[in-house]
Simulated scan of single mutants.
Amino acid sequence: MINLPGQLTIRTINGRNGDFNVGRLSTSIGEFVIKDALLDQYNEGKYRGDFVITEIRPSYYTTGGRLVVEIRAKLDSMTLDDVANLSAEEADRLSSTELDPIDEEPSSTSTPDTARKPHRHKSSPSTQPDDDAPFGMETSPTSAPITPQDADKQLFGTIWPIGPSVRLDTTVDRQRLRQQCARLGELGYELDFKLQLWTLSSLKQPA
């Protein structure tokens, strides 16, 4: 593990899973590709600070019929001092055809037991599944609809309820982290990149 000063350039790319961020870290010992999940919290730009690197390794993947070889660094943490906008030239250095890190992760496969269609027992007409119920699920006449608060509780998990400020757990899966960031934006939160803390803006209150 080493701690190095440097500049992290982040570019936002729109992929099939939605927007995601990729970065390049320039340091005194070289330039490295950064694809850690924690980048998805940040806006596009150039960030100066100190970076704790736990691993440097070569990485290979194919995209658009070509083989891409790059040197990646894995971040443990970072302390950021300031941010500046990207110039057009700097943005061009970060290819807009980068592969989404989610697509590089092994896809989960269902076992025969979990993939099998749930068995439905015969029921009386009064307990027949609702035609509007999700596939394989039955609704109960007494079941309450899911409220926005219930959905938020499920999305944020162990950090729910969120107060005026919240620090996200960047070790959760990438898709959930991106959804959390998007939801916080909808609720009027903004990321303080220096504190790495989402804080409720005084200009907008959550609905």
Results as ranks from 00 to 15, higher is better:
residue 17 N to K: 11
residue 49 G to V: 04
residue 185 G to Y: 02
residue 125 P to D: 13
residue 53 I to L: 15
residue 183 R to P: 00
residue 101 P to E: 03
residue 109 T to Y: 02
residue 197 L to H: 05
residue 190 E to S: 12
residue 152 D to T: 08
residue 95 S to W: 05
residue 121 H to C: 10
residue 22 V to I: 15
residue 143 S to K: 14
residue 75 L to C: 04
residue 59 S to N: 11
residue 179 Q to P: 00
residue 136 G to H: 01
residue 57 R to D: 01
residue 43 N to E: 08
residue 67 L to D: 06
residue 77 S to M: 08
residue 163 G to H: 13
residue 29 I to Q: 03
residue 75 L to R: 01
residue 76 D to R: 13
residue 58 P to E: 01
residue 204 K to L: 05
residue 59 S to D: 08
residue 153 K to E: 08
residue 80 L to K: 10
residue 73 A to G: 08
residue 161 P to C: 04
residue 183 R to G: 00
residue 55 E to V: 09
residue 111 T to N: 07
residue 88 A to H: 10
residue 90 E to Y: 04
residue 60 Y to M: 07
residue 31 E to G: 11
residue 176 R to T: 15
residue 206 P to I: 03
residue 188 G to C: 02
residue 165 S to R: 12
residue 115 A to G: 05
residue 67 L to K: 09
residue 34 I to A: 05
residue 49 G to M: 09
residue 137 M to F: 12
residue 200 L to N: 02
residue 100 D to Q: 03
residue 151 A to F: 09
residue 39 L to S: 02
residue 169 D to M: 11
residue 88 A to V: 15
residue 152 D to R: 15
residue 79 T to W: 10
residue 124 S to W: 09
residue 34 I to F: 00
residue 19 D to A: 15
residue 21 N to M: 08
residue 39 L to A: 07
residue 80 L to S: 06
residue 195 L to K: 13
residue 118 P to F: 10
residue 76 D to N: 11
residue 104 E to R: 15
residue 146 I to Y: 06
residue 1 M to F: 11
residue 18 G to I: 00
residue 83 V to E: 04
residue 72 R to L: 05
residue 114 T to A: 14
residue 1 M to C: 08
residue 169 D to E: 05
residue 15 G to Q: 02
residue 155 L to T: 02
residue 106 P to G: 04
residue 9 T to N: 03
residue 103 D to S: 11
residue 160 W to A: 10
residue 47 Y to F: 13
residue 203 L to D: 06
residue 122 K to W: 12
residue 191 L to A: 05
residue 195 L to V: 10
residue 52 V to N: 08
residue 118 P to D: 05
residue 110 S to I: 06
residue 86 L to N: 07
residue 138 E to N: 11
residue 69 V to Y: 07
residue 12 T to I: 15
residue 152 D to K: 10
residue 28 S to N: 12
residue 202 S to C: 05
residue 2 I to S: 13
residue 108 S to Q: 12
residue 177 L to K: 04
residue 11 R to T: 08
residue 30 G to R: 04
residue 65 G to V: 06
residue 125 P to L: 09
residue 104 E to G: 14
residue 162 I to A: 03
residue 45 G to F: 05
residue 8 L to D: 00
residue 158 T to P: 01
residue 170 T to V: 15
residue 24 R to V: 15
residue 4 L to S: 04
residue 163 G to W: 12
residue 199 T to W: 02
residue 165 S to P: 02
residue 103 D to L: 14
residue 23 G to W: 02
residue 182 A to G: 03
residue 97 T to H: 14
residue 92 D to F: 11
residue 152 D to E: 10
residue 146 I to W: 07
residue 68 V to G: 00
residue 165 S to V: 04
residue 15 G to S: 07
residue 171 T to L: 13
residue 11 R to V: 07
residue 136 G to D: 01
residue 40 D to V: 13
residue 38 L to Q: 07
residue 198 W to S: 01
residue 175 Q to W: 08
residue 40 D to L: 11
residue 61 Y to D: 00
residue 21 N to T: 02
residue 135 F to P: 06
residue 31 E to K: 09
residue 50 D to V: 12
residue 52 V to W: 09
residue 179 Q to N: 08
residue 40 D to Y: 02
residue 206 P to Q: 03
residue 193 F to E: 01
residue 93 R to V: 13
residue 203 L to M: 07
residue 165 S to A: 14
residue 93 R to I: 15
residue 59 S to R: 10
residue 27 T to A: 08
residue 139 T to R: 15
residue 129 P to Q: 06
residue 53 I to K: 02
